[in-house]
Design a protein around this nucleic acid. Sequence first.
DNA 1: CGGGGCAATT
DNA 2: AATTGCC
Length: 609
Amino acid sequence: MPPRRDDRIILHFDYDCFYASVFEVENPSLKGVPLAVQQKQIVATCNYEARRRGLQKLQLVTEAKKTCPEVVTVLGEDLTKFRDASKELFQYLRSFSWNERVERLGLDEVFMDVSDIIAYNMGLLNYNDLRTAFFNMSRSDPTVGFSFDASVPAGHTFPEQVLPLAEDEEQHWSDPVFIQLRLRLHLASHLAQHLRLLVEKEKGYTSTVGVSTSKLLSKLAGNVHKPSAGTTLMPPYADDLQDDAGIEREKSNVRLFLSNYEVGLIPGIGHKMAHALRSFTLGREAAQSVELNYHKPSESVTVSEILKHPDANPIAFERLLSGHGAQRGIGTRVWQLLNGCDDSDVSQARDVPRGISIEDSYQKLEKLEDVHDELLRLTCSLVKRMRVDLVTDIEPRILDRVSHQKNEPQQRRWLARPKTVRLSTRDRFSSATNTEGERSWARTSRSCPLPSFIFDLGQSVPSIAEQFVTGTLENLFRKLHPDRFCLSLINVGVTDMDNEIDIRRGRDISTMFKTQNDRLSGWRIDTEIPQAMEKTSINGKSMERSDTMELYGSEEDMRLSQSSTKEVESLWQDEDEVDTLDDVDCTLCEAKLPAFAMAAHLRFHRLDS
DNA sequence: CGGGGCAATT
DNA sequence: AATTGCC
Ligand SMILES: Nc1ccn([C@H]2C[C@H](O)[C@@H](COP(=O)(O)OP(=O)(O)OP(=O)(O)O)O2)c(=O)n1
Ligand SMILES: [Mn+2]
């Protein structure tokens, strides 16, 4: 049995019917009516009023209208609005984090590792008066927070029945592990509820929140009660619980929770692996659902049914699942997931995405001329998005001085430079692999280095796009389709983001890594705080500060120690103040110039086209 | 005739 | 370059 480590507390937020909610926030009169967000011929999502009337997510529009003729449909093919709303909500939630371990999954889900906040508040908890507790959301300002009843969790729980802590005292207070985990989950459920209601009140979005000790369990817990609610997975989490006399006690709620889950609903187990696991369990090929709505397999197999199989073990899973692009160690990973174990970290927020791509789909695209036009369209929006997402408006000081001298308009600067461009297409009649009747979904792609004129901020978007299409993309396209083609999809993307900071000269890269690692080890210490504080709080002592926190001179130092690359960059600029004579890099080419020459150099670029 | 887009892995 | 996974 894989070991559990339940020392973390993780919240999972999932905004309700996200795309639909964006439209409702924008236009509240849509709130009462059944609303479907349409992308081409599919209902990407629909609001809960529509679901009440039988609509489903990812349904064909024709079916949806059959089910509910009154449905109002809005077009959601342009994701800009959703991306913007997603960013805003993400930034809002992130502002409550102390450790920056806040991870976005897709546009509408956010994981938050709040172990440190919970540990801090465990330390402040008065065990003799759980019912009138105060939750501190700031370490520096003790008035920021909310009152709550720590003897019960907020919102829903799994299982549903929970006695207030004070009332089953004799049964549980003697078990420090149990009581400590339970109290932490109580606190976390109140924090989750508080944040969920704040997001609703301040931003207008309802969401579902799950509370547990891993990404896996918090996400699944949230699913139990769906629109606008919170659910906490209650302890005990460990199984084979025995007391000193060796008498078995309650069964693990994790196991109780997972055992009847359909395997395909476990995040991390997609269609392919779910099918393999079903077939493995049944001893034969599991029935395949060729439905559009492949959420429900025509033959469902639960977690407990799989684990009952005599050959269910990590080695067998590895053999079963490895091969098709799955990672090594997938057998162990899946085995752990099915047993409710997930030690994956909530990653720190990236300030910049790893890649950006734009795509569109078509009934058919056969003429080279049309392809050119579409490439141009896609490239224009790609370049625009790059300029929004990858360019900082905040002037680095060193350039600021230059533009000041020359009375230049505000300079903008690339936060990151993708190194590669990739063109992918989907051809309807691709020669490959199609058993008759089935469509080909196979994409093919070609990539090459991204030319640097893409980064020229002085040139207009359409002019860059035209240059890019004729000079780069059409070459890639000829590689993909030397002769006839009939495309149903084109995707243009840039990848291999290189943080601008990484390619800044002067200092060498190893120096930079060292700097970053120093900062990283800063918050690695931070992650140990919960442990240290838990121990002391079990003993009934209340601490104002953990010893490890003394490593930081102040809250401000703390923030710096977890700094994003943006902040790192600003640190460097401070250093640059000292040795002003260092050359700086041109943002448009590889040139290295004295700072005072940069403005003229940039004008040279503008004339360059 | 099922959309648009991200990340990890090999 | 292709697969798989996630939303
Ligand atoms: N295969 C998918 C899955 C999701 N989405 C989009 C539409 C959703 O609005 C958004 C979030 O996905 P969810 O699965 O969380 O669905 P919703 O938020 O719409 O609904 P729910 O209330 O069930 O969370 O991502 C999509 O376009 N295609
Ligand atoms: Mn959602």
